[in-house]
Design a binder for these strands. Structure first.
Length: 513
RNA sequence: GUCAGUGUAGCUCAGCUGGUUAGAGCACAGCAUUCAUAACGCUGAGGUCGAGAGUUCAAGUCUCUCCACUGACACCA
């Protein structure tokens, strides 16, 4: 059984922004978590490259749509590489392979009798590129946004019989674990309850798209094209393409992680399309929120967009991943505040976790021959061992709920407990008292071991920091399964420790980003 | 406009079916301390819980009105 996680296929109208980076980081963390839990994970990401907007953008910059797409798509590939994203597949919707899958998907839907030719009629605003529901009887309605009069359009389109699936979709969206978070689920339920209408799946005025077989001049509507990308990602490119092979390739997806803006397409259209094609439905959808910056919406007009590339080179991935996953509740909107970002990194990662490691390895080296204390007597049961196992429990539960915040907090709480334990036990005092000669090694070992568990748990959230912590502890995860690594007492007594180096230097608030 | 939601310390938020002096983290201040990355720990100051009215022995928690903000309301993604 595979565990398939998808990011959205990002629209390559422009380069990646922090929002897509955010989604991708979250999916990456999730994928790493499930891999460590022993699942056969397939993390899918990619790009959606068709549509009128892309065509226009390419024209503006005097490029062919294809070269525009090549360029932007490459920038996504490079970006994910620099962020060390652990995706297994990267789909491009301009790939011939994908186009073949779309064609086959379409013919399945056609066979189900769910495609018909209809007329798209209505008042259309060229500026908005959309039909307006004027709801009035005005002779010449105008667009509120553009203050221009609307055009009457009467266009021949292929339609998909969404309405036929009203009952199935209604049942699906109401089922308990399909849509998260609950507030979004409610929106979709209301939307579906108001009655589903058929939607058009082809365009006659958009050249930059996949041609609809048998309908000259029609290209597929981007959503009918892009969503199918999740399937093409799973089908290998060798031999004949067959949707029937999907069940052996990992379909259905375990979770589609998406932004709240595209929830409806995933919660309503996509399941209906899959039903029509006779394919199984994804297990769940998680719709996360948007990021603002210092309370303001990021956008070109304000000129306040955060460039993920620049952020990464300025601060490194650990602190940014921590900020995005720990400070923003997944599913809600988040705000990127630079001061808060610096504070959080310094407090949590440098002071609480990094310094815990630093102070403990220092003591261990100083008093125990540059090594982990050689414990001869049995390790007495202690509070840290207990809170560690609680932390591991809580961490896993939270992760399974995509509650990255809760998972991160669990780790942090453990580090705080370890710091308190050290202050309570004060080994730097006890080491001077001969009565404690046999006890101090246990104190140090307990904290070192707790720190190791923190390092191991940190792996899916902050893989880089995790590695640096474990290295300082001379612990090599080797081929041990994660659950073995999470066993108390895996740190080998007597092993020599490297010279302590801060694993997470404090950040200064100065650079303007 | 219709529907849904939010408004609690400077900031981000917890406060379940109403019940003693309203909580946490960060920021801020003080104390203590040196094993450590001017770190850790302890303590403290900070709120008429959006406004008003009502129900109740008792309301941040229920009802109504108002104010402010946000989201959904079908084919840009």
């Amino acid at each position: 059984m595979s565990f398939v996680i998808t990011t959205p296929l990002y629209y390559v109208n422009d380069r990646a922004h922090l929002g897509s980076t955010y989604t991708t980081i979250a999916c990456d963390a999730l994928a790493r978590f499930y891999r460590l839990m022993g699942e056969n994970v397939i993390l899918i990401t990619g790009v959606d490259e068709h549509g009128q907007k892309i065509q226009q953008t390419a024209e503006k910059t005097n490029k062919t749509p294809q070269s525009h797409c090549d360029e932007i798509s490459q920038s996504y590939i490079d970006l994910w590489k620099s962020w060390n994203i652990s995706h297994d597949r990267f789909v491009r919707t301009t790939d011939q392979h994908h186009q073949n899958v779309v064609n086959q998907f379409f013919s399945k839907v056609q066979e189900s009798g769910d495609i018909y030719i209809g007329k798209q009629q209505g008042w259309y605003c060229v500026g908005c590129e959309e039909y307006k529901d004027t709801g009035t009887n005005e002779l010449l309605p105008t667009c509120d946004i553009h203050q221009k009069s609307l055009e009457w359009r009467d266009e021949e389109n292929l339609f998909f019989r969404l309405s036929k699936y009203q009952n199935e979709i209604e049942e699906l969206v109401n089922s308990s674990n399909f849509i998260s978070p609950p507030s979004r689920k409610k929106e979709i339920c209301n939307f579906v309850a108001s009655g589903l209408k058929d939607f058009s799946i082809s365009r006659v005025n958009v050249d930059w798209g996949i041609p609809v077989p048998g309908y000259e001049g029609h290209t597929f509507y981007v959503w009918f094209d892009a969503l199918v990308g999740y399937l093409s990602a799973l089908l290998d490119t060798k031999g004949d393409i067959s949707l029937d092979r999907l069940i052996f390739s990992g379909w259905p997806a375990s979770v589609h992680v998406i932004g709240k803006d595209i929830l409806r397409f995933h919660a309503v259209y996509w399941p209906a399309m899959l039903l029509s094609a006779g394919l199984s439905l994804p297990n769940s959808l998680f719709s996360h929120g948007f990021l603002t910056r210092e309370g303001l919406k990021m956008g070109k007009t304000l000129g306040n967009v955060l460039d993920p590339e620049r952020l990464l080179s300025l601060y490194g991935s650990d602190s940014i991943r921590w900020y995005l996953l720990k400070d923003v509740k997944f599913g809600q909107d988040g705000d990127f505040q630079q001061k808060r970002f610096i504070d959080l990194t310094n407090n949590d990662l440098s002071n609480t976790i990094g310094n815990l490691l630093n102070r403990t390895t220092s003591m261990s080296r100083k008093w125990f021959d540059n090594s982990i204390p050689l414990i001869t007597t049995p390790n007495p049961d202690n509070s840290l061992k207990k809170s560690s196992s609680q932390t591991i429990q809580s961490f896993k539960t939270n992760f399974k709920d995509l509650n990255f915040q809760g998972a991160a907090q669990a780790i942090l709480d453990l580090a705080i407990n370890a710091n308190i334990y050290l202050n309570d036990e004060a080994p730097w005092k006890k080491i001077k008292d001969p009565n404690y000669t046999n006890y101090v090694p246990h104190i140090i070992y307990n904290v070192l071991e707790t720190t190791r568990l923190i390092g191991v748990l940190l792996n899916p959230l902050l893989p880089d920091l995790s590695e640096r912590i474990l290295k300082q502890l001379a612990f090599t995860p080797s081929s041990d399964s994660w659950s073995a690594q999470l066993e108390w007492g895996s740190l080998k007594p007597g092993v020599s420790l490297p010279n302590p180096v801060p694993v997470m230097p404090r950040l200064e608030l100065n650079e303007e980003i």
